[in-house]
Design a protein around this nucleic acid. Structure first.
Lengths: 126, 126
DNA sequence: TTTATATATTTGCCAAGGCGAATATACTAA
DNA sequence: TTAGTATATTCGCCTTGGCAAATATATAAA
């Protein structure tokens, strides 16, 4: 049952935070590092999980790997994203993540993937 | 994060089938045995899981324990039930379960909990 | 070619949770 | 009280998937 896999993807806090952000715009691993303040290994692992289950796709661009929600989006995902977007304002963690994303948006979308090196980017994200 | 627990509840085929049926009407364990053709121990285990996580409640009536979706229903559950109801027609397993429920409905709701002994009920369900 | 950066995977460990079989509990009826 | 029925829990076993640390790979820059 495909549904089950979707729910498993949503059953982890880190993955839910990733999806919540990806619903806004494509992002690469170093973005997530800055936004979520989690170790790279953890972010990559969960993005890999989502990729294996068909929820996200990647495009390589230079040194960076950009993750985006799968296109076309699985119908089950669409419905749950709609729900997630209604819910995230009430979930402090998800709300803060989105706030941080808009706060950094100018630096993110002026060069996505970022041209600045990771350390410098992390510094800006402080 | 409460959401995570909801998704975990939905991440198992047996539990999804139970919830799908409970969205129609309250049922007791022997109903599920007849409808799903699964061992009692498995059904009880998963209903216990759903109860511990606040998705269902029980009322005892004689020898029978009747399960129903929690009331008031958690908002996150409501949204996902709506989605589930749109989806279940496309999921053969869930669709068949619902068909079997309507097929047996007369025998179920004439005495819910059933007055007939379990064996006899199972016989009817064949 | 060497070095640094960005990302992915492997390893070893651990907890959650799946299963069937057996057993316990609770209620009913005889 | 005894027997039977409905449901719940425990047990031993196994798989999934969480984590951090270490390592591998791929690209870019010097």
């Amino acid at each position: 049952m495909k549904l089950i896999n979707l729910y498993r993807c949503l059953s982890d806090v880190t993955r839910l935070r990733l999806i919540n952000l990806l619903a806004q715009q494509p992002l690469c691993v170093c973005h997530f590092e800055a936004l979520l303040r989690l170790p790279q290994t953890k972010i990559s692992r969960h993005l890999g999980y989502l990729r294996r289950h068909g929820l996200v796709t990647t495009t390589q661009r230079g040194l960076w790997r950009i993750y985006a929600l799968a296109n076309p989006r699985p119908p089950a995902l669409v419905a749950n994203l709609r729900f997630l977007q209604n819910t995230s304002p009430e979930e402090p963690r998800l709300r803060r993540d989105l706030a941080k994303l808009t706060q950094l948006a100018s630096q993110l979308d002026c060069d996505c993937p970022p041209i600045v090196p990771r350390r410098k980017f992390l510094h800006l994200a402080r």
